[in-house]
Each structure stands twice: as structure tokens, then as C-alpha cells.
Design a protein around this nucleic acid. Structure first.
Lengths: 148, 148
DNA sequence: TTTGCTGCAAATAGTTTGCAGAGAC
DNA sequence: GTCTCTGCAAACTATTTGCAGCAAA
């Protein structure tokens, strides 16, 4: 996991560079994305901020995520069931391991991706720009509580 | 690519086995899923069938996809932008290579998945049940027309 | 004849957008 | 003071659901 403070500064700097205003709501959203503890959803971010900014609206969360996405500083993980989760801590594509019971998302270390990417490019003649790799399963916690 | 006729029969047989009625609309949907040329969306399927069944409704397409999914005979590919594509020809998880320009979807041959799955299971202590691997890029056709 | 299926229309849920006022610079 | 951002509510889109009539077995 990257240093959240560093990520926070990076994203804020990008906002400035692109001429965007620095509002308290915006900073709060960036702060949460910079750590991205547990890969929050838009609603999660909204809930976390509502305490400090009672007037905060979900629309603002979405607008800011969209903005930060446009600089490539947040990774959007959309799932078939319609749920979206965000990772502003490691904004570049990386594998995820998702528990289908408790929805926990873990980042494994895998190094075979680059080899695979090259293999695919050669076989399909595509210019590969990005990728997405998710594993779905049951985490050890949920397996334990299942047996109980 | 699996033989579409065989896939068609397999799916129809599963429907019978589970006590579902065989309606013309259902057969038309199964027919398209069995080939899954170009990994159609629900709307694509609807459009393809509307010619033969002018009263066909999208709801019926969705209901049947849901039913066939419940036997594991169709693979649903949901994307963050909300689009869903289906593959009833190869219903088990397999990598996809997606052109971000023309939305073409290609199935590459890759054999390193099993090794990866094992690696992830060992590292995270998850029981891995399924996975999803997509590569995004630009196909050779689109690259050619881009240069023109 | 019985039951499940279809077609229609309305409901749903997550996300986006229009607009007027508020706030950053 | 200017111009973007926010908050609210309404709009939007893909999918799901309730219901009455229809059709497969």
C-alpha cells in the first residue's frame, strides 16, 4: 500500500495543476480515496463524510470521483451486480481478490501479469492498454464462520 | 469456439431437466446465446429476435438470461459503463480482449490462469471459486483505420 | 387442465444533470 | 468580482417486477 499522505498530496497537486478549486468537500473525498481502506463505494465515501459535512450530497461524491478519474488518479472497479468500488491508493490496474460473502477486497502480489500481457498482444495483434483481473472466492474468515 | 448446435442442445436439455417449458421465444434466445457471435448484449439479442417475434419484450430476454445463468450455461460480462455482454458458447470464465474503440471482444488462448489461481489461493488463503480477466486495448483493424 | 411464460407497464437503483445560490481564488 | 463548485431535485438507463392473459405439456 502506498503512503496515503503522499497520495493525498499527489492528487491535490493534480487538481491545482488542472486549475480546479480546492474545496473542503473535495479534500475530504480525496482524503478517503488516498487511503481507500477496503476499496470504498461512492456511498461509503458519502457516509464517511456526512458526519463532517451534513449537507454533502452523493452527486458531489460522483462528480469528484469523475474528475479525479480523468487524471487517472483513481481506479474504478465496477462489478456486474452494479456495485462500484474505488481505489485511489493504487490507481493503476492490479489484481483483486474478492470475497463473495463479506465483499472484502484484497490486493494480492502477482508478477505474472506482464508476461501475460505480452502473450496476449502477440496472439491477438491488439495494442494492450489496460487490463482487469479479479478473483472471486471466500476468505478465510468467512470459511471459518461458515463451519461454526 | 464450441459447436453452436451442441451448445444449443445442451442448454435446451438443461431447461427440460429443470422442468421449464420450451417456448419459441426461449428457443430463439438460446439459439443466439449458443453461438454468442460477438458476445451480444441483452439489447442485441432483443433486436435480433424482434424480426421473428414482433411482440418480444426485453423483459423476456432478461428473464431467460437469468434462468440460463442459474444453470451456469451463460457467462455474464458486466462492465463498469453499465454494459452487459453474454457468452453462452463458452460459459466458463475465460480471458477476454476488448477493443475500446469498436467494442469487439476476442477470446485469446492463455494457459497460465490455473497457475495464477493457485498462487493467489496460497497467498491470500481464499478459496478461489471464479475469476475474471479482461484486457483492454485497440484491435489491429482500429489501429489501421486510425492511421488513415 | 394446469402451471409456468410472455408482454406490457410501472418500479427500482445507481449515477448523472440542470439550475440557483455559495464559496474559492 | 468572477467563475467554478455544491446541494437539491429531477432525469436517465439498464434491469427487475406485478399482473393478466396465453400457451406448453
Amino acid at each position: 500500500m502506498a503512503d496515503p499522505k503522499e497520495r493525498f498530496e499527489t492528487i491535490v497537486q493534480k487538481l491545482r495543476d488542472h486549475g480546479h478549486k480546492i474545496t473542503p468537500q473535495r479534500l475530504a473525498i480525496v482524503g478517503i480515496l488516498a487511503k481507500s481502506h477496503g476499496h470504498p463505494s461512492a456511498e461509503d465515501i458519502y457516509d464517511l463524510i456526512k458526519g463532517d459535512f451534513p449537507t454533502m450530497s452523493l452527486a458531489t461524491v460522483y462528480r469528484n470521483i469523475l474528475l479525479i478519474k480523468s487524471f487517472g488518479e483513481v481506479l474504478e472497479l465496477g462489478f456486474p451486480d452494479g456495485s462500484n468500488r474505488y481505489d485511489g491508493n493504487k490507481p493503476h490496474p492490479h489484481p483483486h481478490v474478492i470475497c463473495i460473502r463479506c465483499k472484502k477486497i484484497v490486493d494480492p502480489d502477482l508478477d505474472s501479469m506482464d508476461i501475460m500481457k505480452k502473450e496476449v498482444a502477440e496472439e491477438t495483434h491488439f495494442k494492450i492498454l489496460s487490463h482487469r483481473l479479479d478473483f472471486f472466492g471466500i476468505c478465510s474468515d468467512c470459511m471459518a464462520s461458515e463451519k461454526a
